[in-house]
Design a binder for these strands. Structure first.
Length: 196
DNA sequence: AACGCGTCCAACCGCTGTCCA
DNA sequence: ATGGACAGCGGTTGGACGCGT
């Protein structure tokens, strides 16, 4: 079988490759990635081109320096959604799922771990239970739609809570997180929901 | 100076979902 | 209804870099 297999380039992108890719996308738009790779004359697979565009070349990409507010939002959304990076990234303008995933893996997962270790040392199980019950009662009386979710996960340890909250997302997440009419950094109800 | 080690991040891989003929 | 192509996602990897010894 003499299949003339085109050698596929892998690894870091060069400035020249970036330029070619951006040029072709400017003409044809960011779709049909396989065709884009061919048109740009790049020895790359479509997948690789898409990733490069989405994570690096796309306009309006913010790079580095994740602010405290952004970090806080990531933490809260992650607690709610789990590792659904693209969904989380969708709520952080200019941030990519890859960036958030990396940031989580390198910074936040450690922070969480530390925090939970401190929590275990500082707070007894009984105290935790009492505090959670108090929060649940507060939210039940305030009639928030999210209180049901809270009740479901109000038993067990932190890890179980997180897992169960991931599993019981039985609503339209996009609608639920449509913050278009709100200041995304001032979402008191999320704060209350997550402060357990 | 040089070596080892840990961290970060860009990119790859494998899988699933969606679309279309 | 079905199968192939493509898009998108999350997990993982590997190289570059910084820092301590």
């Amino acid at each position: 079988m003499a299949t003339m297999k085109r050698e596929v380039n892998k690894g870091a992108w060069t400035a020249e490759e970036d330029r070619k890719l951006a040029e072709v996308i400017a003409i044809h738009g960011p779709k049909k990635w396989k065709t884009i790779a061919v048109k740009a004359g790049l020895s790359r697979c479509g997948k690789s081109c898409r990733l490069r565009w989405m994570n690096y070349l796309r306009p309006n990409i913010k790079r580095g320096n994740i602010s405290d507010q952004e970090e806080d939002l990531i933490l809260r959304l992650h607690k709610l959604l789990g590792n659904r990076w693209s969904l989380i990234a969708g709520r952080l303008p200019g941030r990519t799922d890859n960036e958030i995933k990396n940031y989580w893996n390198s910074h936040l997962s450690k922070k969480i771990k530390q925090k939970s270790e401190n929590k275990q040392i500082g707070v007894s199980t009984k105290e935790k239970t009492i505090e959670k019950r108090r929060v649940v009662e507060e939210e039940t009386t305030s009639g928030e739609k999210i209180s049901k979710e809270e009740n479901k996960s109000s038993t067990g340890d932190d890890e179980e809570e997180e897992e169960s909250s991931n599993k019981c997302i039985n609503f339209n997440v996009d609608e639920f997180f449509d913050f278009s009419n709100e200041d995304p950094l001032n979402l008191e109800w999320i704060n209350r929901f997550l402060e357990t």
